[in-house]
Design a protein around this nucleic acid. Structure first.
Lengths: 191, 191
DNA sequence: GTCTATAATCCGATAGAC
DNA sequence: GTCTATCGGATTATAGAC
């Protein structure tokens, strides 16, 4: 594996473990097993290395949300994607970055994060619109709103799980959201 | 105002603006208009100053969730507290800390955060139980689960708002949650 | 392309005068 | 109680040999 790849891989690991601000180029080079000269040959600095790493991580994660475009009824796809196992205490590799002031202040980095959310939210929105069209959710539901609600449940679940150092709050938040979707389904059926 | 108070106030501001890791004692002293000697006279270091500041901020925020214990029907209280105006792009002063690796690694600091969430979640849970008892939500809803769902919607709303640098996703996430609660209310009424 | 050496600055903390 | 001076170490980055 090339030094460049070893560097982005080490950066990705450290971003997840420690976040952006707390990760120094020194740490990255040590984990990558690469000298300082290599790092500054391939990248102009910490920011540049982060841009490439963010891009790679965002691509992997946005592929995940394509579960929403799979088989089954729209409501089942929504519930299925909500219930995908997520390591709550480790946090979302993308969502976590929004709370790092150094990332938010970096226009290029936050744009990568925002774009990843846009892709995932678009898929949520389409699946919700499909569920409404199929009569599985009430027509009073606004797809763009509910998409953000369900994405927020997951992102907020990570926050609660990290606050307690425990996976349980994440799982509880998802169960509660599923039960609301089931209740809304029942309401739609009664119409 | 005493130097001690000026220091905790400056620390609270900087924690919100930059987070814990990115705030140095130097920054705090500069904003407080206080010399280094004062800082280390009143506090043993950055950690100690943060413990006092976190405690004060957590008290103010947990007072806010007492809206859930106010007047009106339980469901109205839930919807009302969900809809309280929140500056999404600035983030939650408590929730934001869960994504800072240095805070999570500090047992004393994360305990203050966890405790604040426990108090707020207890109030969510009680209001939800009241709503079920009043027939406003289906009995299939588990209060402990839905409490975490709704708290997650708010915390996740902050994440989405910060990702886009825009208040709109936060408001959309809340609207979507309210519409699900309304649908669940309709389902409960049909039973 | 990769290495080591070094720079300038900032970090959190301590010492000691007043 | 508050100040300034200073410590040892880490930070991001550059220089230049190989």
């Amino acid at each position: 594996m090339s030094a460049r790849e070893q560097l982005t891989e080490a950066m990705a690991e450290l971003l997840w473990e420690r976040g952006y601000a707390a990760t120094s180029p020194r740490d990255v080079m040590a984990r990558a097993g690469v000298g300082q000269g290599s790092m500054y040959h391939h990248f102009s600095g910490k920011h540049d290395l982060a841009v490439e790493t963010f891009t790679e991580v965002a691509e992997v994660l946005t592929e995940g949300s394509s579960v929403l475009e799979g088989d089954g009824s729209p409501l089942d796809r929504l519930k299925g994607y909500l219930s995908v196992p997520r390591p709550g205490t480790r946090g979302c590799r993308i969502g976590r970055m929004t709370q790092d002031p150094q990332v938010v202040a970096d226009a290029e980095l936050i744009a990568i994060v925002a774009n990843a959310f846009d892709i995932a939210l678009g898929r949520w929105e389409q699946a919700i619109a499909d569920a409404i069209a199929a009569g599985e959710l009430p027509t009073s539901v606004v797809p763009a709103d509910l998409a953000r609600t369900l994405a927020a449940v997951i992102q907020g679940g990570y926050v609660l799980a990290r606050a307690k150092g425990d996976q349980a709050p994440m799982d509880a938040a998802v169960r509660g959201a599923v039960s609301l979707l089931d209740a809304a389904h029942a309401a739609a059926t009664h119409d």
